[in-house]
């Protein structure tokens, strides 16, 4: 009886130690696990064409053709409901010209709304833009000085000096750009902005 008791004490403590160790391991693993960033998912959707191909084919006047969902469904009209705001968007996007001297111009109904320099970053697979003039998230000339001051104070006014586009697909005829829908750093929701080359 005493032998049995000793054996139980011996193996019981070993089992208990193993159990504690197992719980510790599981805790460590759970703590170390993080939600996966959306970057791999984005990279899959990006074009795999190289810098030479892209820079050679992108020099053109690109006319906005359509906005499509990630599954290819064309979006012509969109209802927007945000908080108390209800609005309708008749889908349209500006055209863009890429010149052979790396200059680009974005045109809305024929009027230049943005211009600067552009190049393809092969490492990050993005089309990089450097603006000639800074742009803002809010039209600063249409905001009262008081509101502008308020926006500056609470960090809501953002100045943009550069931009980047992710190319989904580029051919000799068409250019397809990833247009992100609202999402966090884990999810990835997007539409595709499709341009046709003007002949």
């Amino acid at each position: 009886m005493k032998i049995l008791e000793n054996k139980f004490l011996k193996y019981g403590s070993t089992v208990f130690s193993l159990l504690i160790f197992f719980v510790f391991l599981v805790s460590c693993k759970t703590y170390g696990q993080e939600k996966e960033s959306n970057q791999p998912a984005i990279n899959i959707v990006k074009s795999s064409k190289n810098k030479f191909f892209i820079e050679k084919n992108i020099e053109a006047y690109w006319v906005f053709d359509k906005l499509a969902t990630s599954s290819g469904k064309i979006i012509r009209r969109r209802n927007i409901i945000v908080d108390t705001l209800k609005a309708v968007e008749e889908v349209s996007r500006p055209d863009i010209i890429f010149k052979n001297n790396k200059e680009y111009k974005i045109l809305d109904k024929g009027i230049i709304i943005e211009k600067g320099k552009c190049s393809y970053d092969d490492k990050n697979s993005i089309l990089k833009f450097i603006f000639d003039e800074p742009k803002y998230n809010v039209p600063i000339d249409k905001v009262s000085p008081e509101l502008l001051e308020k926006l500056k104070k609470n960090g809501s006014l953002i100045e943009f000096t550069e931009n980047s586009w992710e190319i989904h697909e580029i051919t000799n005829e068409s250019l397809s750009i990833i247009e992100h829908l609202p999402h966090n750093e884990f999810d990835f929701k997007y539409n595709l902005r499709v341009y046709r080359k003007r002949k």
């Binding site: 709304i113 943009f160 586009w165 247009e179």
Partner: peptide, 12 residues
């Protein structure tokens, strides 16, 4: 009615 017009997309 409120109508929304796309201005730009900028990625920082």
């Amino acid at each position: 009615n409120y109508n929304a017009t796309y201005d730009r997309s900028v990625t920082q």
